[in-house]
Amino acid sequence: MKITIATWNINSLRLRQGLLHKLMAGLAPDVICLQETKVPDELFPEAIAGEIGFAHVLKRGMKGYNGVAILSRLPLVLAENTPDWCAKNDCRHISARLETGGLPLTLHNFYVPAGGDIADREQNVKFGHKLDFIAEARAHFAAYPPGRSVLVGDLNIAPLENDVWNHKQLLGIVSHTPVETQGLNAWMAEGFVDALRHFVPPEQKLYTWWSYRNRDWEASNRGRRLDHVWVSRDLEAGLVGCEILREARNWEQPSDHVPVSVTLKLD
């Protein structure tokens, strides 16, 4: 079977839930992973899943910030034993077993800390938190190597030179500093493949985020690739295609991130 998994930092689900209809029209996914839902579980707008034809919802949210969710056509079972990253209980990860008709697929949905503005852990505790989170995630997947797994989310790091609009200018900017990119690549190396770069050569510019500060984001095109899809190495041969829904940055009241999807052929 083929399955399409989409990921999107929606930047407030209650504010932008209507845009999920546009996401469905643009990408036709079987599963949607959301980050920054910014809603506690008891206030989660469950009805939107039904409106877009998804019968299964898992969520982990809190008031005002963070929050992750998975909406699916296919049955899901929550993975209960996921780590409490950095002992903060701050709703940055949800994992599930996805029933595909054959062997199940493990799905991880992450929202990595942004890290603040100063790229120095001594001066900026948020940056320290980000580095610690990445290190813990790497260690976890080193201890539990992924198999038949997909990891998606807003990982808040643009790891390659052409994942940012100007590599040299952004080397000192949080999201593209060497310590962050090395950490993210080390995490991915614990058993994953970069699914987007499987299709788009590293020499080609690739962005999923454009700042709200850019009045004309399209003309300036100062983007970064902060949103990722990784697949475990055993799934690489099944990669069929990927899409970045760039037009979403022009939707009414848009997120600063755009939806991304990857399609897999499963045995």
Rank of each mutant, 00 (worst) to 15 (best):
R14C: 07
L196N: 09
P201G: 08
W210Q: 01
S95Q: 14
P40E: 10
E236Q: 11
F54Q: 00
H198K: 12
E51N: 02
A158I: 00
Q123D: 12
K130Q: 03
F133R: 01
L151W: 12
W217V: 12
I118A: 04
P202E: 05
G53F: 15
G191K: 08
T181A: 10
G183T: 00
L160G: 10
S175P: 02
R246Q: 14
V229R: 03
E80K: 13
G172T: 15
S72G: 13
E243A: 15
Q123I: 08
I134F: 04
L15K: 11
Q35T: 08
V57H: 07
V152Q: 04
H93D: 03
T37A: 12
V152C: 14
K130N: 05
H140D: 08
W187I: 01
G191M: 11
L171Y: 01
R224D: 02
A189N: 13
L226T: 00
A248Q: 02
R73F: 07
V152R: 02
Q35P: 01
A143V: 08
R225A: 09
F192A: 14
L19V: 06
A139F: 05
V57M: 11
L184T: 01
L170M: 14
A87I: 08
A28E: 12
L105W: 02
P104V: 04
H56R: 08
A248W: 00
R249V: 10
N250V: 11
L71P: 03
I94E: 00
G53K: 15
D234H: 15
N81I: 13
D41E: 09
T4P: 14
Q17N: 03
G64W: 13
S149W: 05
L266I: 05
N9T: 09
E136C: 08
G238K: 02
Q169I: 06
Q35F: 01
D256L: 12
A135M: 05
A28H: 15
G191N: 13
N11R: 13
R246W: 14
A143W: 06
I244L: 15
G53A: 11
E252R: 11
G50Y: 02
N250C: 15
F127S: 01
Q253G: 03
N109P: 07
I10P: 00
K205F: 11
L160S: 02
A195N: 07
V164R: 00
D267M: 09
G128Y: 03
G64M: 15
F110P: 06
G153I: 01
Q123L: 15
M1G: 10
T4W: 08
L235A: 10
D90L: 11
V164W: 00
F199V: 10
V31T: 09
K205S: 04
H93I: 06
G191I: 12
A135R: 03
P146D: 07
R148L: 04
N11V: 10
L107A: 07
E51P: 00
A69Q: 02
W187P: 00
N81K: 13
A158N: 00
I244P: 05
L103H: 12
L226I: 01
